[in-house]
Each structure stands twice: as structure tokens, then as C-alpha cells.
Design a protein around this nucleic acid. Structure first.
Lengths: 236, 236
DNA sequence: TATCTAATATTGTCATACAAACTCGCGGTC
DNA sequence: GACCGCGAGTTTGTATGACAATATTAGATA
């Protein structure tokens, strides 16, 4: 028998939290692509909740910068420019190298084991070229590092950044050569962590994020170029 | 005649934005001290708005980490531990050294002039020992640096951090010797910016934030010690 | 005094309502 | 045929009222 459900902690079964994670997923997965307009009434129907809850959820996503307000107050899925992505990855590098250092220093055995397990799944998914799966597992890896770093603040700052680039990762990993390079990077990170070498882990994380950044920025710049050349009908 | 008012941009005259900034101010100023419970109905009365708006405002403040949910779903003003403050300042150092570098590289003449003006007011307030005023002007300085850095992402990430430590700054500046030291730090920053020396500006910012961090963390640790020794009635 | 219970308060959620701003298409005018 | 403006329909912002589920407080009782 499982005792998972016996937790005394408060029931997080809030309708709005449910709505938030549904919307987050929809955005991360690209179901609602960047720039897509989110109409409250439609979201109510899609989620089966009242406008009150939808609006509170939107406020939250708004301050997470997953959605943004258009000129005439419409809510649109945030568009991430190449510049934005470059900055996000720069900041992630700052934060997550720090985070993995702390992970090495502060994580307990269970956390390291769990991270290793995620890494294992990652390698497996990598060999199958399953992008969506891969992206999800990568997210979990980053998140576990953040949690193991045991800093509320780092987590709170870095986590929304992860969410913002989530949907980009799927495409960036499809960049030619990114996958194989990625494998080495993940291995290096995991290796350093298990060796307890914070410096090496941080460096591996930095290399990984710099490469990911390059791939994503390249992709976005290419997209923006083609978009510019065919900007017959812009607006929103 | 001033043309400021002729801007075409959308009217940000939203009740909820008003509510948010009122609440933010109340928290920054310490009117609602850390740990204080925020009751929706009371806020409605105090702000003269409906519960709808108050709740949306609270959701926003919540994802800015200015308020946090208690165990039984009460909304309380966030409590910042010494650990939190240390991390926030570490991250600020990362972000704002980067920001001031970009400010040096990217700001236009008007922005540099405006920053110099803020610096001047800062020096004046400093000589008067007016903490509240000083804190407000310091906030403006940081914010102008962030804006001049011309990075949406840096701004979005760093700004909430500023808000979170706002109310701490007033007390930290009251630490013995912090004021005089502060003056030199501000001067060094401004000097480097006007000389167009990004390295020196970044270093001055780093020094400034490290000193501020030390003062605030020391203060918080002292507070926590006394609080622990008299923790007869805790809870919330 | 300690404890149980009933009254009260608070939050989460929903359903409506309505004004203001905006969209879009229709019809009329030149 | 092009342009203008008007009106119906949308969408968002905000307020109000309602109600269940908890949480808190006060009161009554042993």
C-alpha cells in the first residue's frame, strides 16, 4: 500500500493551480505557439473553469513572462526574440553554474542518485531521438539540480527562466549535431557531480548552456530572418 | 508646453495596477511588515477596490515573491531570511554588474545624464541622513541602470529582486558606517560610468552590492538570533 | 481551568452584470 | 468604386453576490 496520499500538508488541489499548469504545459508544448492570442472565454471552456480562475491564472503566467499583454490588452503567448533567448541563457549560465556547485556541495545521497537516474533516462531518450521526451527529461534534470542546490531564491529566479525556454528546447535540439554534442555535455556534468568536483561540474554546465544557447539563438535568428522577409501581414 | 501626456500608448489606468503598486509600496515601506497577514476584505476596504481586483493583485505579488501563502492559505508578507538575502544579493551582483556594463556600452546621453542627476540627489539625501528618501532614490538608481542596459530579460529578472529587498535597505543603511562607505561606492560607480569604463563600473557595482549584502545579512542574522531566543509564540 | 461546541471569518470558486474599448461588417455617400 | 461612419457583437476590466469548505474565535459547560 502506498502512503503517498497520507501527507498532512495542505491540499494543493486549487482549481487555479490546475489551470496554471495546464496553460503552462500548453505553452511549453507549443500547443499555444508564441504570439497566439489567449481569449479568456475560450480558456474557460477549454479548462472547464470560471473566468475568475482563468484570470488569476493568467496574472500568474503574466508575471512569469510566459504571456504578455498586447497593445489592446489582449493576452498573447510571449514571443521570445533571439536577443531574449541569448539573455536568458546568459542568466541561466550564471544561476545554474552556481546551482550545480551547491548541488555538489549540499545534495544528499538520494538526490544524487535521483539525478543520476534522470541522466540515465536522458541518455536513453537521446538514443531514440525523441525530442519531446528528451526536452521533458532535460527539464527534470535542470530542476533537480536547482532543488538540490537548496536555495529558495535561486530556485525561484531560475525556474521561470527554464519555463520560458522550454518550448524552444525541442526545436533547438533538432539542430544538426546538437544531439551528439549534447550527450557528451550531459555525461561530463553527471560525471563531475558524481566525482564531487564542483569546479568541473560548473564548467560542464557552463559549456552545456553556452552550446545550447548558440543553437537556440542561431535557430531564432534564422527564423526572424525568414519572418522579416515575409512580413507582409504583421500586427497582432 | 509639455507633451508627455500626448503619448498614444495604452492607458495603464487599471485598478489592479493601482492596487498592486499600492500594496508594493506598503510592503516596501514596512507598513505591512514581513509576516503580516493580508486579509482580502481589509485590503478591499483600504484600497477601495473589489475583491476581484485585490485577488488578482495578490496573485501578482505572489509570483513576485513579495507575499507568500501560509499553511492554511493565508497570504502573508514574505519573510526574508538571512540566507534569502544573501542569495538575492549574490544574484543581484551577477545581474547588475552585467547590467551596468551594458549601460556603459548602450546608454544614450540622456540616460547617462538622468543617472547622474539621480546620483546627485542621492548624495544630497545621503548628507541629510534621510533613510526613507535615500532608499527610494537608490531604487531609482538601480532601476535606471537596469533600463539603460536595454535588456528586457535582465530587467524582468532583476527588478523583482530589487522589490524584494527594498524594505530591507532602509534598515541596512542605518548600520553604523554603512552610509559613509556607501557614498564612496556610489561615487565610484558614477565616476566609472561617466568615464565610460565598463570594467571599473562593474567592479564598483560588485563592491557596492557585496558591502550592502554584508550589512543586510549581518542585520538579519542579528534579528534572527534575538527572534529565536524569544520565540515564545511563533506560528502565523 | 480545560475542553468542546457553536458562531463568525476567511478563502476559493462560480455566476452575473455592465461599462469601455475594440472589431468587423454593413450601408450610405460622394 | 472608394471612403466614411454607424451599429452589432466581442473582449477585457471591474464589481457584486453567492456558497461551500475551512479556519478562527468566543462562549458555554464540565
Amino acid at each position: 500500500m502506498e502512503y503517498e496520499d497520507l501527507r498532512i500538508v495542505d491540499t494543493p488541489s486549487l482549481v487555479r493551480d490546475h489551470a496554471i499548469s495546464k496553460l503552462r504545459n500548453a505553452i511549453s508544448s507549443g500547443l499555444y505557439p508564441p504570439g497566439a492570442r489567449l481569449v479568456e472565454r475560450e480558456l474557460c471552456e477549454a479548462l472547464g473553469v470560471s473566468r475568475t480562475s482563468v484570470r488569476e491564472a493568467l496574472r500568474q503566467l503574466q508575471s512569469e513572462n510566459l504571456v504578455e499583454v498586447g497593445r489592446r490588452r489582449s493576452i498573447n503567448v510571449a514571443v521570445i526574440t533571439a536577443q531574449d533567448a541569448a539573455d536568458i541563457y546568459m542568466i541561466r549560465e550564471m544561476l545554474e553554474t552556481q546551482a550545480i556547485r551547491r548541488f555538489v556541495a549540499l545534495s544528499d545521497d538520494a538526490e544524487r542518485k535521483a539525478l543520476a537516474a534522470v541522466h540515465k533516462r536522458l541518455v536513453k531518450a537521446l538514443s531514440k531521438n525523441d525530442m519531446a521526451q528528451l526536452s521533458a527529461i532535460a527539464s527534470e534534470f535542470y530542476e533537480r539540480v536547482l532543488i538540490g542546490a537548496k536555495s529558495r531564491v535561486i530556485y525561484e529566479v531560475a525556474r521561470p527562466l527554464l519555463a520560458r525556454v522550454n518550448y524552444l528546447r525541442i526545436r533547438s535540439m533538432a539542430e544538426p549535431g546538437r544531439l551528439d554534442g549534447g550527450l557528451k555535455e550531459w555525461d561530463a556534468m553527471m560525471d563531475a557531480v558524481q566525482a564531487g568536483d564542483a569546479d568541473r561540474a560548473a564548467e560542464a554546465m557552463a559549456v552545456h548552456l553556452r552550446n545550447a544557447r548558440a543553437a537556440i539563438v542561431a535557430r531564432l535568428e534564422a527564423d526572424e530572418k525568414t519572418a522579416t522577409s515575409s512580413k507582409r501581414k504583421a500586427a497582432s
